[in-house]
Amino acid sequence: MSTLPDSYKQYPMRREGYDHDLYEWSNIHTRAPFQWPEGKSVAVFLCVSLEWFPITPDGPFKAPGHMVTPYPDYRHYTARDYGNRIGIWRMLDAFKGAGVTASFAVNAAIAERYPELIEAIQADGHEIIAHSTDMNGTIDASLGEEAERALISDAMARLEKATGARPKGWLSIARQQSFHTLELLKEAGLSYCCDWVNDELPYKFNNGMTALPLNHELSDRQIITVQQKSADSWGESMRDAFDWLAKEAKAQKSARILPVHLTPYIMGLPYRIGALEELLADLRARSEAWFASGDEIVTQWKAQQ
C-alpha cells in the first residue's frame, strides 16, 4: 500500500478568513440594509448567454454545450446556432412584451457575426456583458497569464468594435477562472464580474472589482439540461425562489436578487418559451420586483455602500 507524505496533513492556509486573498468573508444576513429603487426589494436580473460554438473545439477545457460527436458535429453546431437564429428572437419578444430589460453575456464572435442581433438588443435598451471570444475561449490555470491577458483583451477589443461600447461586466465561460483572472479583468477596464456564485448580493473583490453573483443553480442549463427538469418545473423553482427572497428581504428590511440565467438554445425552444413568458408576466405583477440589468444593479448597490 502506498502511503501519503506527511505534508498531506499540513495546512498552511488554516487561518481565520479564507484560504485565498480574492475577497473577504461576510455574512449576508448582518450587512447594512439597503433598497432597490422605488422601495423594491427583489431585483430580477435576467442574463442571457449568447454563445457561438466553433465546430472545431479548442481551448483549456470544453465549454458546456460544446461539440460531442466526431468532427464534423453538425448536430450540436446547428442545434446551438438555433438559439442565435430563432430562440433569442423569441426571448427578445418576450422581454419586450413584458416590458423588462436584461443583460446579454455576448461572445465577441456573436457580436461580429450577427450585427442584426446586437442592433436589436441595443434598440431595446438591454445591456451587453463580455463573455469571452467564442465558446473555445475558456479560461483556467493551464492557459497561462499571457495567453489569458491576450484572450480577455481580444474579446474586449472585438466587442467594443462591434457594439460601439466597452462592456463593464464580464462572465467567463462556465464561470471558470484562473487566479489571475480578476486582475486581468480589472486591467481590461471591466468593473464587475458574475462568475462567483457564493453570494446573493454584490460584494467587493479585494482588487476593487465588484462581484455580481449569477446563481448557476437557478440557470436553465442547470435545471433543464443538467437536472433534466421540465420548463414548468424550472418556472416553479423560480417562483419558489422569488417568494422566499421577497419574504427574506421583508424580514430583514433589505434587498435581494433573483438571477435568471437563460440560454437561447435551451429556453428559446417552441415548447419551453411559454414557461418563460408566464414567469415574466407573474414576476412583473409582483410589487416587490425590480427588473434590472447587471450594471443597474451594481450601480444601485454601490451608491448605497
Binding site: D140, R175, Q177, F179, D195, W196, V197, N198, H216, E217
Partner: peptide
Amino acid sequence: HPAPSVVGYSHRD
C-alpha cells in the same frame, strides 16, 4: 479544473 475551480469552490462558500 486546475485551481481555482470557481463554481465548485464558490458554490460551497
